[in-house]
């Protein structure tokens, strides 16, 4: 009897280690919605997928660079990261004393984030997927029309240095996902599908609504303003850029 008990405890222990390593994910049930800037401004349909509950942390990323040295600060190649990649770290494999292991990893490029997810057998979410999950508040899957929801997001935009907080410090949303708003901005796989950059003015398919922030402020709801900020940030990024308030999380297709 005792041996069975020990075995059970052992298995439980191993299991918990395993789930710890493989960061927790939840199922996001697919559906349709109209994003701020979608295809033809029409409904976008999302297939079911699994999403990391939390953004990737310093600790997790540290383990990653130890396993894949080519992503260490001094070894990462310049095509994939800019100069500020992991700038706050003490060394290639050491966090700085003021960095908490459980704070979200930031100062990582799109290439690094993408590679991280792929190494876990996952991928980065698309803009549409990310926005789909992020439009939920604590209780409803689409809270975009709620004043409180938008005020929370906008108040975060004003708060400095939220990237120093630890994961799970903001609200848990309808899908049981934490920290989509309030901690860090997050990379998406197709962030470069947003045509709100300087050069797109010369493009043919310009949408004049994209260029004027004040138009968004005057819009009937705050919802557009909060989302507009995210789309604008994405539009301004290049894939090798790293920022200290830009992290990421991974997703996986539902099989």
């Amino acid at each position: 009897m005792k041996t069975i008990l020990r075995l059970a405890i052992c298995i439980l222990f191993i299991n918990s280690i395993y789930t710890n390593c493989q960061s927790k994910m939840v199922l996001i049930k697919g559906g349709e919605y109209i994003p701020l800037y979608g295809r033809d401004s029409m409904k976008v349909s999302i297939n079911s997928f699994h999403m990391d509950v939390y953004p990737v942390t310093n600790k997790e990323y540290l383990a990653f660079v130890k396993k894949y040295p080519k992503w260490q600060r001094s070894k990462a190649i310049k095509l994939f990261v800019d100069k500020s990649y992991l700038r706050a770290w003490k060394s290639d494999t050491l966090l700085n004393s003021n960095q908490k292991p459980n704070s979200p990893i930031t100062n990582v490029s799109w290439f690094a984030a993408k590679n991280y997810c792929e190494c876990q057998g996952k991928r980065l979410p698309t803009v549409d997927e990310w926005e789909y999950v992020a439009m939920a508040d604590q209780k409803m899957p689409d809270a975009r029309k709620l004043k409180t929801y938008n005020e929370f997001i906008l108040s975060w935009y004003e708060k400095p240095k939220t990237y120093n907080q630890t994961i799970g410090s903001t609200f848990k949303n309808y899908w049981k996902v934490y920290d989509l708003h309030g901690l860090v901005w997050e990379w998406t796989s197709d962030f470069n599908s947003v045509l709100i950059s300087g050069e797109s003015r010369k493009d043919v398919d310009t949408d004049n609504d994209l260029f004027c922030g004040s138009a968004a402020v005057n819009a009937t709801d705050l919802m557009n303003y909060a989302a507009f900020m995210r789309y604008a940030i994405r539009g301004s990024l290049k894939a090798k850029y790293t920022m200290k308030n830009l992290g990421f999380r991974c997703v996986k297709d539902d099989k």
Partner: peptide, 16 residues
Amino acid sequence: VREFANVLAVKYKQIS
């Protein structure tokens, strides 16, 4: 293609 576009800083989106 997405990765390569990122290297060139080309942005694109399928609209239909």
